[in-house]
Nucleic acid binder design. Structure first.
Lengths: 231, 231
DNA sequence: AATTAAATTTAGACAAAACTAAAAATAGAT
DNA sequence: ATCTATTTTTAGTTTTGTCTAAATTTAATT
């Protein structure tokens, strides 16, 4: 193997497992210099803390995480960049599946988990172009740009909106299959207009108007729906 | 793990490596009850014969190949079925890349090698539908149907056509990047009409008419181009 | 039929990524 | 400040897929 390839191997070739760790650490907040514990990562990934320790060392050797024994890990700049590129691929594939292949929003995650590891810059850029450069995935999560810029949104959980506030559904916090199916069944979709009519102190449930229709929403639901407030 | 999943694991879950072996064995002719030697497989896959032996045992245990020590392997019916499903995915993805994402035909193989291992029946069926159920991939190779039917074509190598015979370019035997780029540069494309004008005994080169334009073709090229003869 | 060359398999080792069980370090509570 | 409960790491093992080197079988030749 040539010197050049040794370089490539060390700095660019990521295994599927390494990519999944970076993604998880990012989602747990490890991109903001915050240290994430091995336990937290293990729980999220349904693996054992000892496995996380092994991987932390490997990713640290590659310069992708800062790891201090017993203190947890955080992502380096290179780690953040890599994590964002995987998240970008994941979310673009989700949009592709929904827009081009008629998948429902509760079906896309599992397949995107596989597609996000396909290695071809041209492929994902062309998919991006085919979809006309979408800004959000089917669950309302923002899609990082090619150069790793992350669009943060000014959104609130429905449960945190005051009475009489109006807005638009823009995302879900919980994107599990049962929750998404529940939303479908109750005709709650991203893009829907929302007005908070009343809050019930007793159980924290809400009375809202959605697309003109009045309905009651439990706290459980309201605390998993993101709304962009009208100003 | 439940009993059901043990069943699934043994009979359905194929690793990437197992899938690549089955595909290679099929391409070497192991689907026609013919025995393929470990050496041939090793050479094709750029691996060592001892590694092939190991995998032969594993695939035999799974009922996907017939393996007799020192005699080589051939695919069982289940093995053929699995190989065809991977080849189907590979070729459909190639069509997708060319038709929907403007890849050139020399760029698609490498990416399709990755995409062919994505596990989602719905995904590949939807891709098939999006492409309007294509019968051939960008190199003219037939795409197996969902139920594993393989469309054989009545095609000849250009080098085997008699003088004055006419036909249409339908495929390439060698689909390496240099050969495909050569064809592009010389405006030789699938679908082009062809007439054999003359054969040169000295070096086996051909004088042909392609889309009305006369050109000289070396034996090397002619023996890697498939032509469908007009009747 | 014996010998030799080539192909194939076995045995043992390694790397990646996971695990278990035991040891070590940290943090919380008195 | 010490003790204990929890967290984290270490050490050693497992599985998958690969490798090398040695042993074995097959095939070819005389």
């Amino acid at each position: 193997m040539s010197n050049k390839n040794v370089f490539l191997k060390k700095y660019f070739l990521m295994t599927r497992s390494e990519e999944n760790y970076l993604k998880t650490i990012f989602h747990l907040g490890g991109g903001d210099a915050k240290s994430i514990t091995t336990n937290a990562i293990a729980e999220q990934m349904e693996t054992k803390p000892s496995s996380v320790t092994d991987m932390a060392k490997k990713l640290s050797d590659k310069g992708l995480v800062n790891y201090v024994r017993y203190q947890g890990v955080s992502l380096t700049d290179a780690g953040v960049k890599t994590a964002l590129s995987i998240i970008r691929k994941h979310r673009l594939w989700e949009v592709f599946l929904v827009k081009k292949l008629d998948f429902t929003w509760d079906e896309v995650h599992e397949v995107a988990e596989q597609l996000e590891h396909i290695k071809s810059e041209k492929l994902i850029d062309k998919i991006d172009e085919l979809l006309d450069f979408p800004k959000y995935d089917p669950h309302g999560d923002p899609i990082p740009t090619k150069d790793g810029k992350f669009q943060e949104r000014d959104e609130k959980l429905l449960s945190e909106m005051p009475i009489n506030a109006t807005g638009v559904c823009v995302g879900v916090k919980d994107s599990s299959v049962p929750f998404l199916k529940f939303l479908d069944k109750n005709k709650i979709a991203l893009g829907n207009s929302i007005k908070v009519l009343d809050k019930e102190d007793f159980d924290n449930s809400l009375r809202i108007q959605m697309e003109g229709k009045e309905m009651r929403i439990s706290h459980q639901i309201a605390s998993n729906l993101y709304v962009k407030k009208n100003n």
